[in-house]
Design a protein around this nucleic acid. Structure first.
Lengths: 225, 225
DNA sequence: TAGATTGTTAATCGATTAACAATC
DNA sequence: TAGATTGTTAATCGATTAACAATC
């Protein structure tokens, strides 16, 4: 337990949080290729990250390696799965069965990882009763009833912007622990509810900013000194 | 032009890039409410950012305010639109008309902002000829022909992971400047092509990590000192 | 054992914040 | 003018990197 005591600060830096899923994915790949061991140097080479940073990132959570050897891929993967909370199953509800909601509901990649959409709600009466990804679409008015009768950890919001804050409040009031928000709004939620934003427009604006910034400086003395 | 010379470094920090769309959105809101002026302090209050940081962020690009007054909302908005590259129109092609591709094609919010999907490609012959968001779905084999005949700045990739790197290469070879990638892969692209990742799974893993991290430390002496 | 590579400390780098002179 | 608020410099804070003793 020589975990560098950063844990007690209990705020893991954003950069680390962002890199964990990257480690995870690469380790899954290695594991599928039956690679047995990997060093921080090799990992860094493959991911474009310094070896020191990788070791530093891991050390927030424990010591998973062996001097002179490196890391056993399977063991490291198990550890990172645990850290990311992938050693359990999550029950989710989806609110909003529009284009985006349907895409999320049908997305395979996370069902495999234990994220399971158990119920879908929409305010449009025309959608009511339709099936989507194995669920019957229910009217949003039934949201509370469902949440009271079922254990749900994550709410996915894919409603129009006007509705999203209200849905967020209702989900939070019924005790969901996390909200995955696809609506173009910065939701306000109580401290105990984690909100993760999936904001398409912001992403597109970042792209357009970088494109402009790259083409603009057409003839700088050197690209990056 | 007392732009703090940071510009010549020509790398704008990631944090700034991330905040620009946030400023943009809030300014649009203010402008719609016909608010005339705003100070960095008010802006910071509304967005949960320090006033100093906001002024520092703006100063990378120029001086848009007036001492003793603050910022004229409309003028600041115009400036930020320019910085984000929203003063022009982008032609886009979408490759992959699956669930995610269809959602992106139908998403209104960015068509309004000048991001225009002009052609859609898919490798599934069954989809060929179908209409989606006003475009006929074409076979991917026609991608090059289309890109040669039309000026396209942005390619949107919403294909399965196996296909995405190849599509990326083909888009880059035909001179697109930006790629908006929805496939769960870190694409490699030449330096002059900007790649923005929209990775659903990574986002969901971050959510799950934070949920675990928040609930785990159930009884720390104090939540954040 | 000798070689390799970890986990961690110390040094560096960069980003955020505080403070204030400039000035509308 | 007096009051307010900018743009920017200097101080602080935090994250990344380099270095190395510990050790497999």
């Amino acid at each position: 337990m020589s975990t560098r005591d950063k844990k007690k600060t209990s705020g893991i830096p954003e950069g680390v949080v962002g890199r964990l899923p990257v480690y995870y994915r690469y380790l899954v790949e290695l594991s599928e290729k039956d690679t047995q061991r990997i060093s921080s140097a090799q990992l860094g080479e493959a991911l474009g990250i310094t070896a020191a940073q990788i070791r530093s990132d891991f050390s927030y959570f424990g010591s998973f390696g062996q001097q002179g050897y490196g890391y056993r891929v399977d063991e490291l993967l198990t550890q990172i799965k645990g850290i990311l909370g992938l050693d359990r199953t999550y029950h989710m509800v989806l609110v909003g069965a529009g284009n985006l909601g349907r895409a999320v509901a049908s997305y395979r990649n996370f069902k495999e990882r234990g994220f399971d959409i158990r119920a879908i709600f929409d305010s449009n009466p025309l959608l009511e009763g339709n099936y989507l990804a194995g669920c019957i679409i229910q009217p949003v008015s039934r949201l509370e009833v469902y949440l009271e009768a079922n254990d749900v950890q994550i709410g996915v919001i894919a409603t129009p912007r006007e509705a999203s804050q209200e849905i967020c409040d209702r989900l939070a009031a019924k005790g969901v622990q996390g909200i995955w928000n696809f609506s173009p709004i910065r939701l306000k939620a109580p401290d105990h509810v984690v909100v993760e934003h999936m904001h398409l427009t912001e992403s597109l604006l970042r792209l357009s900013f970088r494109m402009r910034n790259r083409t603009e400086r057409t003839a700088p003395a050197s690209e990056h000194s």
